[in-house]
Design a binder for these strands. Structure first.
Length: 373
DNA sequence: AACGCGGGGGC
DNA sequence: GCCCCAGCGTT
């Protein structure tokens, strides 16, 4: 199957040469005003690009504003401690991004004397900077003609050029990358790249694209065939894994028992209530909880919360534990209630904390039990 | 080359 | 409910 537009070759070439100019003109006339648009500081651009990895603009905006207020320069970020960095990222997800961004700031400070590198190879060596972020930084901040390929670009190019195949697989991926490379102009590559992404975000939508508003609908293979919905080809969905989490709320003497998640696995270094994760719903959860944290008595069910982590669907039950005997505390700490809001929680446990920790010292403090100290 | 990783928004 | 999102690092 040929991957090219439905027009003749000469017609196709003519339309392709007009593609960049029409797209740029559209972008300059009607792009959104975003907090990082028009910014020249490479650090600020890096922050925005890392936040925008797999995260929608709408979600990123408030985080970006707060972040730049708290860490206005590369140095302030480099000097910050990890807890504060994670707190600023709390709720944004993919928490590894925050730690890699932190590491990148420290690397620029320590290895490049605080001067942000401008050559692509050095930019690529920064933690958390992959092919996309490299191209975005290089083109937007430094004017290098490097092609960005993100979800928006994949959708626009597969539709316009009628590129078949699942984009995450090599044949289609290679063709998309090559197409993007051919299109990116020497002049204003940063604007062009942003224009391509803006088109994908505002016009060439995953479902119900607004083709009548599209500046480049002439020449679009999918539009010509009415086949917008077939591009890009979807990969088979991943199986959903169901899990059941049981968390305990233990409060005593104005302190709450909290755990910090370890390295590796998900949501590294974030805080949560002590909990166990089981593959099945079970009334015997407390036995598992006991072997992990300590003996418990007189539990009171408080609430149920459903949430998801990638392809895991988790039903989370929170139980108040009135009597608790600690004998294992691998990663658990007694945290003063006033300190809990300052810690970075996972989103699900943050919801529990906001609901059950505020003013909790005035409720039912758990009682000492047995020889617990 | 495939997989794991968050959370929210839109329909 | 399901799909998607300005991807990256690891295996």
């Amino acid at each position: 199957m040929e991957n090219r537009p439905a027009q003749t070759d000469s017609e196709s070439r003519r339309l392709q040469s007009a593609f960049s100019e029409l797209l740029l003109a559209w972008y300059r006339a009607s792009c959104r005003k975003l907090p990082w648009r028009g910014v020249e500081d490479p650090y600020a651009i890096l922050v925005s690009e890392v936040m925008l990895q797999q995260t929608q603009v709408r979600t990123v905006i408030p985080y970006y504003e707060r972040w730049m207020k708290r860490f206005p320069t590369l140095e302030t970020l480099a000097e910050a401690d990890e807890g504060e960095v994670l707190k600023a990222w709390e709720g944004l997800g993919y928490y590894r991004r925050a730690r890699l961004l932190h590491a990148a700031a420290q690397m620029v400070t320590s290895e490049f004397g605080g001067r942000f590198p401008s050559d692509p190879e050095t930019i690529a060596s920064l933690p958390g900077v992959g092919p996309y972020t490299l191209a975005a930084l290089a083109s937007i901040a430094f004017g290098h003609a490097m092609p960005v390929v993100d979800g928006n670009v994949i959708r626009v190019l597969t539709r316009w050029f009628g590129i078949r195949g699942v984009p995450s697989r090599l044949p289609a991926r290679r063709e998309i990358a090559e197409t993007a490379r051919r299109l990116v102009p020497r002049e204003a590559p940063g604007d062009f790249n942003q224009a391509l992404m803006e088109l994908g975000a505002m016009v060439c939508l995953p479902r119900r694209p607004c083709c009548l508003l599209c500046p480049v609908r002439r020449g679009c293979a999918a539009y010509a065939e009415g086949a917008q919905a077939r591009f890009p080809e979807a990969a088979p969905p991943k199986a959903v894994i169901r899990q059941f989490e049981y968390a305990g709320l233990v409060i005593r003497e104005g302190k709450v028992l909290l755990c910090r998640r370890g390295d590796g696995g998900r949501m590294e270094r974030l805080w949560q209530f002590p909990s166990v994760l089981l593959p099945k719903e079970s009334k015997k959860w407390s036995a598992r909880w006991k072997s992990k944290y300590g003996a418990l008595k007189e539990t009171v069910p408080l609430t149920v919360l459903n949430y998801s982590v990638t392809n895991h669907r988790i039903r989370l039950e929170l139980h108040q534990i009135e009597k608790f005997q600690r004998y294992k505390l691998p990663s658990a700490h007694w945290v003063p209630l006033a300190e809990a809001p300052k810690l970075a929680f996972t989103a699900a446990h943050r919801k529990l904390a906001d609901r059950f920790l505020t003013g909790a010292d005035r409720l039912h403090p758990a009682e000492p039990w047995k020889n617990d100290r």
